[in-house]
Design a protein around this nucleic acid. Sequence first.
DNA 1: CCACTTAGTTTTATCTATTTACTAACTAGG
DNA 2: CCTAGTTAGTAAATAGATAAAACTAAGTGG
Lengths: 399, 399
Amino acid sequence: MPTSFQPHRSGDLHFLKRLNRSAILELVRRSPGLTRADIASQAQLTKATVGSGVQSLLKQGWLREGELQKSSGGRPGRALHLDEQRFAILGAEVGVHGLRLVACTLSGRILASHHERLSPSSPEVTAELLAGLLKTLQQSPALAGYHLLGLGVALPGPVAPNAPLLRVAPNLGWKDIRFLDLLRSHLPQLEGAWLMDNEAKSAAFGEFYFRTGQVPDSLIYVSAGTGIGSGMIEGNQPLLSRGFQGLAGEIGHTVLQPGGLYCHCGNRGCAETLVSGWSIRAALGVAEDEDLLEALRPRLHEEAVQLTLRRAGEALGTLLLNLHHTQNPSELVLGGSLVQLGASFLDPALSYFKAHQNRLLGSSQQVPLRVIDDSTFIAARGAAAQVLAHVIHGPSDLI
Amino acid sequence: MPTSFQPHRSGDLHFLKRLNRSAILELVRRSPGLTRADIASQAQLTKATVGSGVQSLLKQGWLREGELQKSSGGRPGRALHLDEQRFAILGAEVGVHGLRLVACTLSGRILASHHERLSPSSPEVTAELLAGLLKTLQQSPALAGYHLLGLGVALPGPVAPNAPLLRVAPNLGWKDIRFLDLLRSHLPQLEGAWLMDNEAKSAAFGEFYFRTGQVPDSLIYVSAGTGIGSGMIEGNQPLLSRGFQGLAGEIGHTVLQPGGLYCHCGNRGCAETLVSGWSIRAALGVAEDEDLLEALRPRLHEEAVQLTLRRAGEALGTLLLNLHHTQNPSELVLGGSLVQLGASFLDPALSYFKAHQNRLLGSSQQVPLRVIDDSTFIAARGAAAQVLAHVIHGPSDLI
DNA sequence: CCACTTAGTTTTATCTATTTACTAACTAGG
DNA sequence: CCTAGTTAGTAAATAGATAAAACTAAGTGG
């Protein structure tokens, strides 16, 4: 169930045709309103090739024609846009404290969504519940008339690189779960591509893939919630690496404090012992079944709370700096529920990162760091993005 | 000067032809002795396509025919190998304490090499000296009759991702050097592709690219010398990421000890303050102009030396574990001059990594970690590998 | 010696992108 | 208002690549 589509290493004429169709579709996705002539010059194809490719994409319902562009001395070109009326994708996130579901269009616009709070439960029960909610979402009036391309599921733990297998979800107590199989038995009628991935990687993918206009070369999404994880995406054939065992991006278990506190994983001094929902709960005595944010909001003025949040923020800043010096993405995006802890947590992280990122090069170029205030549906939407990319670049014959 | 060849996003028939030729050549490179029939089945091409592709590669001198294979009930196939007689590549490494030069064949076999000790000097002087040595190497009898494909240069610092620009080389005192331009003025007659990259990335590329048989999905090379750096390579279109500013792999400047010692870069607690040639020199009072290994060899029994090496080794182990939980390569390769410090340094690193790598997943699968005893020419050869890959996959018309 | 199998080549067919020519639609200037 | 010029897009013919089918080559086994 690879989300990183290996570029074929050889191919026939049909492959070439599909490659060019994908390229055209990607260009319009990235730059809505391009004309056929723009595409021809940007993709290094001839007018005729673009013309026939666009024609078939129009007929299949991927593209629609838009307004006439301003003339620049000759015949004006006709703008092309994604057809937002025909295809939709389902995405879901299984979080530690709830399920999030979305249905979105080719451009990532959310047509319908649902957020269901839920305490950790068994994989089977969770799958059955999610399946029911997905069925309900499917029947939502906003989805009437749409053809579904598939379903993507984001999960809170490392996912094996070459199989739809959740290796472990420490904060759910799950291990080696083939979650899609559990889902499928309840949703036999849902056609299309089924994918699953780690939630931070799905989120990274979505933040990268649904962006239009100027797109960064690479992007890391850092998800700070009950645990802390990350996903990196790069390349113009967007490539998302899970690593050999699915451990890529498990930055919560990088060691920041050798000989420090014991982590759930058994090692000492992991980042999660300093910055994570569970370590903050432990430090401040917030029970598992309380909402962390609601529990802390009235206590924000307490000295101990401020200290804990500042320490966690500083650790997050160090993590960000280490990512900068290990993978050096063009853009960092920070999401997850801890973001809502506010300035006492975020300011130390952001200021540490800003102050230290340029020491080595001595430059003044800042890596953009964006904080997502409400990341409720980010991972679910990202999982849908992975499905879309899989359909566009993968072996499917929908294009 | 990208070494990561972006897979074209669209293309014409000529592109398809080149793609298939590259695929054939790559298959034979990876698995010497394949027959045309093997290639056809592995590359998903027809016998006819492979036949004509092989024919042109034979004529151009990339491949040669070998022995007949054992028959399995029918006509035996003819083995194909790289032609090692026609093309050669130059590679060079500018190190802190010397210059290393190699000329190698398509399979990475070294035809000629040279190691010149040298104290840090200006970019201009270094380039002139290197150019002279390259000229001498070119005229070596071992290279007679070979056509040179180009020159790759490995440098001890971050290299910009989209331009042949060395951003900084802290241990040489260089900053923003267009080293290839300096070289070119002394070597106007050297044709072919000219590339430069960070030494750890070149080394990683070479260790990955020249491997035959079972090839890992991804590989990180950790170079432990005066400074400490790394390079990661992955994918079957081998992709090497330099990061936004060339800082990918600068693990020597990840923070392992918040609030620790000041590093050359100005930050505190960087890995290099714990494990690097310069920090070991500083801790044990070895002068810059002495050879670190020779200076320490007679002192290995000293308590202070043992303690320093053990501390450095533990820090290296932590670095390896953090790479494991950040990028999770299929294989780790450890090289650089510090490797020769021996067991007092290596054992703590290797045992820490081995003991802690499986805690999170609870599996028993070990990531292979290979230590290179003599890495003298690894980076130079890797730079040559990058040139070869550039010729095979790049826009060149040699295929 | 013959049936069978597998490797590789040759010939023919098919398919895709390009080339060339053409139509469409607008601007600018007299 | 008309014409020359420019750019967008389409249509028909051409070139070039892979695929398919037929064929030759070279082995095994009974």
